[in-house]
Amino acid sequence: MNIVVLVKQVPDTETKIKIGADGKSIDTSEVKWIINPYDEYAVEAALRLQDSVGASVTILSMGPERTVESIRTALAMGADTGVLVDDQATEGSDALGKAKVLAAALKSLEFDLVFCGHRAVDDDENQVGIMVAELAGIPHLGLAISVEVADGKVTIQRPIEGAKVTMEATLPALVTFGGAHAVWNPRYASLPGIMKAKKKPLETKMLADLGLSAADVGNEAVKVSVTSMELPSERQAGRVLEGDTAEKARELTRLLREEAKVI
């Protein structure tokens, strides 16, 4: 059984978001890069299958050289090999471009299952994984909070309001993972794991290695792109509502409905 886990390197969720000089991306000068948490759950899920059914786990990622660090982290957790697509020409790719790169890279790998987070916490797009499934022509099960494999099928659970749905798909399949840290508790790399990870195979590939050209992905192939970014209006933390009890209750309800839009 071979599992490929798609991993994206993203800014830590505590990063203070500042808009960069170009006005359409964030300032990454003070960013601590981490594995996208949902991808980390996917790594954990894969490693559990590695433990239980002896799956071999490959980490696949794309990005600049710093991405190696995230792949090594996953290798330290216990994944077997890593592949990084590091090609300048992929810069500026939209989700479809990225999916094309990953799908092309998948072709060169053997896999029964592809795992990834249901979204990356930077762009919050919810689409690359599903697009990869579409391009690879395989079924997709989304938002998994548990995963099992048996008899050529993968079974997951997905939470919906007040219930859990159990779904299954025929292999090969792609599963995107949801849940939270407390659900998955991704393992903490041991020191021998970290040492071994330094020696595990990590292959770097260019677009040409995947049979793609710059025209297929990257800026040239972009269909949709961010043209500007803005920060939400500075929220005044510490704002205290005035008035008598009834007024406060009414005002809070109004604010939550109209300003925060959360009820």
Partner: peptide, 29 residues
């Protein structure tokens, strides 16, 4: 170091140190 065998809350605090160099995981900046 060898077994990563500790309680989830300890793991939480270790990850917080790693990413944000403080036990609560608040943004280092």
């Amino acid at each position: 170091l060898m077994e990563s065998n500790f309680s989830p809350e300890v793991q939480n605090v270790m990850r917080n140190w790693e990413t944000n160099s403080n036990p609560w995981g608040l943004g280092f900046a």
